[in-house]
């Protein structure tokens, strides 16, 4: 039966996985659409600076640009890890 099973093997049902991944990436790309090109770079440089003091991942830094009538808000949030002692400098 082993050989027959191998021959008959069907792809895994992965549509759900595709949908979930797309949902996340599409939402993320929509939120940064039309935002300045330098944002990813800004994010990386900020990460470098913050890393000097605390250990954080790239995902911990969130940058958003919001547009209201007449003005733009650059919103930046850094989620600091709990109970991590700051690096001694």
């Amino acid at each position: 039966m082993g050989i027959l099973d191998f021959l008959k093997r069907k792809p895994e049902p992965t549509a759900g996985l595709a949908k979930e991944r797309l949902r996340i990436i599409v939402a993320q790309e929509r939120s940064t659409r039309g935002a300045p090109d330098y944002l990813p770079l800004l994010r990386n440089e900020l990460l470098e600076v913050i890393k000097k003091y605390v250990h954080v991942d790239l995902e911990a830094i969130n940058i958003n640009v919001e547009r209201d009538s007449g003005h733009e808000i650059l919103e930046l949030s850094v989620a600091l890890p709990e109970n991590t002692p700051a690096k001694s400098i």
Binding site: K10, A18, L22
Partner: peptide, 17 residues
């Protein structure tokens, strides 16, 4: 392929976009 969950369905694509 949609019926066996191997491919995104019409509804999936509509929801995502």
């Amino acid at each position: 392929r949609v019926a066996v969950g191997e491919m995104l369905s019409v509804k999936d694509v509509e929801e995502i976009l």
